[in-house]
Write a protein that binds this DNA or RNA. Structure first.
Lengths: 114, 114
DNA sequence: TTTATATTTTGCTAAATAACGAAATGAAAT
DNA sequence: ATTTCATTTCGTTATTTAGCAAAATATAAA
């Protein structure tokens, strides 16, 4: 029961939902997500750890970057059901469309190094 | 986006999930739910208002009682998808089985009047 | 109309959460 | 080995939330 509540808690923050929709488009590193959401790096890192805790996303180290992507191969039934129907669960509002474009254009070599 | 987050926030509390599973069995009034969860009446009333806000449940006044039930006839796609697959989303742990029995046995004429 | 009682609202407290900046960590480049 | 830089962790603050008891509301019974 607590595990179920935890999954929904992970999904109960607008910025975390925006991250999931962005990752639907492509894999992103922390600084790229930070750039799109316009939040502090530490805040984004924390959001990502919460999503990872619930198995919604997975990370992969690539040199000095950590790439995050949707956990599409999970065995977790609820996560699988959710990720397979992202369009039902998270309706494409204006902000999602804007994030899609931003996420596609963002380049880690430009937005990092700050 | 905020609307979506709000639905998940409503689902992010263990006691609210227990309430939804109980209502799967049958319609219940506030004092019956209070008796099963062993919480203050005001706390349960607040939980119910949050679930109602997200269209997950509906209320019907019946004399001095207010009966709550799952909003199975909703037009809300996400709520419909969720309620139609309650068994997937909320796994039947021990506590749910106990609540089922308690919810079936509880009688408003005995547990109210306090 | 008065009393009884089911529910909601209000006011409060303790705990959880999202946000930030600064410090710590870890891996790549020099 | 040292520096650089992406990320995480830590410490703090403001806001939200779950819980309770008490007061307010609303409806049924007397």
């Amino acid at each position: 029961m607590k595990e179920t509540a935890k999954l929904f808690k992970a999904l109960s923050d607008p910025n975390r939902l925006r991250i999931l929709k962005m990752l639907e488009k492509r894999t992103l590193c922390v600084c790229e997500i930070t750039d799109v959401l316009n939040l502090a790096t530490s805040t984004v890192s924390k959001h990502l750890s919460i999503l990872k805790e619930s198995e919604l996303i997975v990370e992969e180290k690539n040199g000095k970057w950590v790439d995050y992507s949707l956990n599409t191969t999970t065995e977790n039934k609820r996560v699988k059901e959710f990720l397979n129907n992202l369009d039902l669960w998270i309706v494409d509002e204006q902000i999602v469309k804007i994030d899609y474009i931003a996420a596609c254009c963002v380049d880690r070599n430009l937005v990092c190094c700050k």
